[in-house]
Nucleic acid binder design. Structure first.
Lengths: 199, 199, 199, 199
DNA sequence: TATGAATGAGGCTTCATTCAT
DNA sequence: GATGAATGAAGCCTCATTCAT
């Protein structure tokens, strides 16, 4: 019994991983139940033993990305107390996670996740605001430590920091590697960090 | 039922407008020929009198957005010679055009447009780089006039300016208006303009 | 594109000719009203001024072939009184008319002509039996003149003579010229004429 | 509605049989996926579990007819060594198989099968020449045994024998049974066999 | 747990035909 | 007599999902 249940747990992970991988590679539209099943070595109908619907798989995928993102954040916070260093580290990690993160906008902008059920859209928004809150926390600490300007409120700064991520992801997506994303991110960071650093 | 018969030029415009509107509202995937036809008050097959295929409609939509974007840019450039003023104006116009612009990322991230034919992906990239070139021009002029810092190259500055747009669009999309996009854009602009202004 | 308005009689002929030509070249299925209209330099809807429907055009085409066939027959009969010579001449003419005749089986075997309306099928059958009757007449005369065996009835002989045509047409159609149809027809004729010649 | 679930092998056969039957009855053009599905008691999309496309079904149908034809030939050859007896048997079997054989010319003349892809036309030609070769073999054996005239080459004789089939099929098709096909075939055979028999 | 057949909704497209101009 | 827009029926196919085994 316990073994069976574990089996399901493992399958769920397998499936969600496969989903993220397929989405990153080919987009949500190409993520057919059939393709997904093929990827995990099952038959389409078998997926329905582990998930109620395709939508549920997408939800799980979104949550996985969220979890990874938060883990990432915690690790970064643990590695240094300095706000600017934390933020830079975070930004650079995005470059590495970009494949996975790419699934994120694709899901968000993809219909079938967001369009029909306002519920799902709200959920994505919740995730975003959660992320923003975390950044806001870092900003606030940075302000308290005197590392960050205090004439701009932490919330706004958080949004502006986050705002560096979408362009990076989009450029990476569109350019197929032709654009030097790392370099661009570093330049952006220079400008941004210089602008928010306390004087 | 019986609707007026309109010239094909008018119909084409109507259809493309409707397509953009539907994409902005529900995404590319939901843009079915049926929905599109319903929107313009025709029967699905009637669209094929004016376009050879659905893909051709999407192409036309992309081109329309591109054209609008460039027109916008020209108008802005015509209204003032000052680089920072031009850029601010441009940014603020985006807020107004947001409905239409929203169709843009959806098209870009949609696999129906880009995934199958790498050709289309490349096309979108060409459009983006065209836009970036224009901004770069503004930046360079600004540097020559002494309005913009010269220790950062115009190209990088252009990308950074463009980088303010995606977050704005995404926030607007995700928050359903809960987020005060205008205010956020203004704050972003303050920070950005301050950072790039020549001292 | 300044289109002359032509009398309906001329137009009807034009259209039917075009139909036969298109059918011979590409088959009935490809004979769309649009293609037909293009061929005669009109717009599809214009055809409906001259014919009530596509079906009517096909009917007219069938009748035209019939008429041509009968004309052919008359000419052949006029050229010589000898039965065997008449038949040989007729057979050889088929080789020349093959393009046009090819439209015949295509129409007969094509659905939309025969399948739905038993009426049309019957009509084709009437044409065939008309042709057979004519041949039967030739045979009978030949028998009376002592040129043809009399131990086989004229009707059967007629059918057998006609039976040489379909293979010729089919081979021509299928082989795209690889098969030496003329040679084959001559051999067939030798065997057949020898077999029916009075001794 | 809920019909039994059958193994895919059985279904494939069922479907192909149904296809042949529908083609014989109404022609290729009328062979819609919907009609086919209805005939086998399934929903249209269900067919796509067993065949990749409609074209694949047609291909299978062609192959089935071919296989049946060859089986027929083998059986006939096994039943007697005498060339003329073999040929007569073969001819008479055609009368029985006529329903199925009727699908054959319809497929051959149908543009849906042959016109678009010259490949298919060629394939049909290959089948025909294969059949002709087999007949040629019988003729040659007959000549060696002294049963068949040797002043006509086997190849030509084969084509002439095959040439008796199309008229039979056509007459049966057109006359809806009004024509006594069996009798006609017998007469044709008498004449033909008499003409080729060695003296 | 996994399979494989079957379903039903929906998607794009073609085409003969009608109708106002 | 001719045009061009619009229609409606029909056609092929995809896909998420269900269900019996």
């Amino acid at each position: 019994m316990a073994l069976e249940k574990l089996g399901t747990e493992i399958r769920r992970e397998q499936i969600v991983e496969a989903a993220l991988s397929l989405i990153a590679a080919q987009g949500v539209r190409r993520l057919s139940v059939a393709a997904l099943a093929r990827r995990v070595g099952l038959v389409p109908s078998a997926l329905y033993r582990h998930f109620k619907s395709k939508q549920e798989i997408l939800d799980a995928a979104v949550q996985l990305v969220q979890r990874r993102g938060l883990d990432n954040l915690k690790e970064v916070c643990a590695s240094t107390p300095n706000a600017l260093e934390r933020l830079k580290l975070l930004l650079m990690r995005v470059i590495k996670m970009i494949r996975e993160l790419q699934a994120m906008p694709r899901i968000v902008f993809s219909e079938g996740v967001s369009a029909d059920h306002p519920e799902r859209k709200r959920q994505a928004y919740v995730i975003l605001t959660g992320f923003l809150s975390a950044i806001e926390g870092i900003m606030r600490e940075g302000q308290e430590r005197g590392e960050v300007r205090t004439d701009l409120d932490a919330k706004t700064l958080a949004v502006m920091f986050w705002g560096m991520l979408p362009p990076v992801v989009i450029l990476w997506h569109m350019s197929d590697g032709a654009f030097d994303v790392t370099r661009q991110a570093e330049r952006s960071w220079e400008l941004f960090s210089e602008a928010i650093r306390a004087r």
